[in-house]
């Protein structure tokens, strides 16, 4: 086996196990999205096109209802920006990690969804595995799961032979686990508590559909106000 081929295969083999929770979550969520789009009256290709062009689960669900409403381009664009604004945080967190990735960087940024960000931020490629290819395959596998789930749901259109109720909890469990790891890595837990607290407070105040933007504003404000002590804590690790 040539060096390059071996390097690529090693990265794929190393990446796959880390994406299994996302395989479970995305198959279920993608299927329900595919079913939802079909039962809303769209052809197979509408959800598939959105899965490639947008690749962001929550916005894709909302986009189905946008397509059913009267044409409102400005409102659509603004709503989409609001729903997707959290990606700005992922980009800022990945500035260093995605440096020097060459052509792969374009794909890595395009495919930077919640779950891919979590894995690529939290997991380091094992010894001897190329970091760039590892993160590339995490991203590619995650997107292919989403596409596969969407295709299944859009093709079956609602007939799933067994009960998958609760399987999408895999996503919650994944974030809980990464949150725990992150928690234990830090000597002080200010930033984790800021995230939890802001989200809880804003969820209570603004409700489930409108709390993300206020949460992000709160997080930014608190991190900026408390920069001194937090930065000393980060350096002390």
């Amino acid at each position: 086996m040539s060096g390059q081929k071996g390097k690529i295969r090693r990265a794929l083999t190393a990446a796959f196990p880390h994406t299994i929770p996302i395989l479970a979550g995305f198959l279920v969520l993608g299927m329900s999205y595919g079913v939802y789009a079909r039962t809303s009256g769209f052809s197979f290709w509408v959800p598939m096109t959105m899965a490639v062009a947008i690749f962001g689960g929550s916005l894709e669900f909302v986009a189905v209802s946008m397509l059913l409403a009267p044409f409102a381009p400005v409102q659509t664009f603004l709503a989409a920006l609001m729903i997707q604004a959290r990606h700005l945080f992922y980009g800022i967190s990945m500035l260093e990690r995605y440096k020097g990735m060459g052509w792969k960087k374009l794909y890595l940024i395009y495919a930077l969804c919640d779950e891919t960000f979590s894995i690529n931020y939290a997991v380091r490629a094992p010894e001897g595995v190329d970091e760039g290819w590892f993160m590339f395959f995490v991203s590619l596998l995650d997107q292919s799961y989403w596409l596969a789930g969407t295709a299944l749901g859009a093709a079956l259109g609602g007939v799933i032979p067994f009960s998958t109720e609760g399987l999408d909890f895999a996503m919650t469990a994944l974030f809980v686990v990464i949150f725990l790891d992150q928690w234990q890595k830090e000597s002080r837990h200010w930033t984790a508590l800021i995230g939890l607290g802001s989200a809880l407070a804003c969820l209570t105040a603004f409700g489930p559909d409108d709390f993300l933007i206020p949460t992000m504003v709160c997080i930014l404000a608190l991190l900026t106000l408390l920069r001194g002590p937090i930065e000393r804590g980060l350096d002390g690790q």
Partner: peptide, 11 residues
């Protein structure tokens, strides 16, 4: 500083 806060938010 953001990632730990983000994971709290995602949960």
């Amino acid at each position: 500083a953001l990632p730990a806060a983000i994971f709290g938010m995602l949960v």
